[in-house]
Amino acid sequence: MSAHRAQWKGHIKLGDISCGVGLYTAASAAERISFHLISKKTRNRLKREFVDSETEETVERADQVKGFELDNGDHIMIDPDEVTAVIPDSDKLLELEAFIPCTDVDDIYFDKPYYLVPTDETSEPTFAALREAFDKCNATAIARTVLFRRMRTVLIRAHGRGLIATTLNFDYEVLPSEEAFDGVPKIKIDDEMLDLAKHIISTKRGTFDPAQFDDRYENALATLIKAKAEGRTLPRPKPVKVSKPGDLLQALQESAGLRSGSGKPKAANTNSKTRKRPASSDASGQRAKSTRKKSS
């Protein structure tokens, strides 16, 4: 991971065993197409300025600091170095508190994955022993530490020659599902509809391969940008047709490959293989540099 900068450095500890580790970003949006904010009239880029709410004068970056507002409206200035200084050394430690089945953690609690690797040659043998123990025992560990100036719970498991550390949302951060599902009515499903739905699901079972899924949104953006740069317009895609309640049974029958009135599904094509969908245009595949400049 020498080509990347560690997001955090500390120690991982199991009993009396510890070693230095670095935390590296495992998922990034840096390769996505990004846009600049520009003037609609001049098409020139806009720049952001912070203005004093009282004097209305522009405040330069060097004079900007974070502050905490008191009840009387005053602010206490907080410098990042002051925050770092008060963090105990123990909070730079990933101490493995317990080993749990990974399936015990609902994926709604998963936040962001990071790679854990040893930070120096001295730590490499200990790290390798820990990683091997994780792998052989198919173990998943829970740990806590201060990451990015806040306490985080972390799920750690073996991955390749290293470890994956996934930060977890706290319980208070996960909104109750009851609130989201409160308005969903209870509807009794006809047995025939349910059987058809189960049949469709069974014929579409497969395995997850991330390489088989392309980013259709990014491809569409690249195609749109290329077309506009060439003075072309693109046809709008057709909207998805939503099945009406009265047409649901027929839609399920058609999805299941049932011939009208036969009551039997058509034979599935077992020789077909899942293939990655080709990019919608040259622009989608090329990601031309002129359309992929990052925002400064």
Score class of each variant (00 low, 15 high):
189 I>F: 10
202 S>P: 08
200 I>F: 12
214 D>N: 07
260 S>H: 09
50 F>A: 06
160 G>I: 11
12 I>W: 03
64 Q>R: 12
267 A>S: 14
206 G>Y: 05
167 T>Q: 13
244 K>D: 15
126 T>H: 06
211 A>T: 10
216 R>I: 15
211 A>H: 04
30 A>M: 06
119 T>F: 05
272 S>C: 01
59 V>W: 03
199 H>C: 12
67 G>I: 01
179 E>N: 04
165 A>I: 00
155 L>A: 01
239 P>T: 09
218 E>H: 08
203 T>S: 10
276 K>P: 13
168 L>F: 07
118 P>H: 06
72 N>S: 15
196 L>G: 04
70 L>H: 08
96 L>T: 00
200 I>D: 10
244 K>T: 15
79 D>L: 11
27 A>I: 01
198 K>M: 06
295 S>P: 01
160 G>V: 13
93 L>A: 08
20 G>H: 10
42 T>H: 14
293 K>Q: 10
283 A>F: 07
244 K>F: 05
196 L>R: 05
287 R>L: 03
68 F>T: 09
15 G>K: 07
9 K>Y: 02
257 G>I: 02
160 G>M: 14
42 T>I: 05
13 K>P: 00
157 R>C: 00
44 N>W: 11
128 A>T: 14
129 A>C: 04
217 Y>R: 11
252 L>C: 09
259 R>Q: 13
76 I>Q: 01
160 G>H: 15
3 A>T: 06
132 E>C: 08
117 V>H: 07
17 I>S: 08
132 E>G: 14
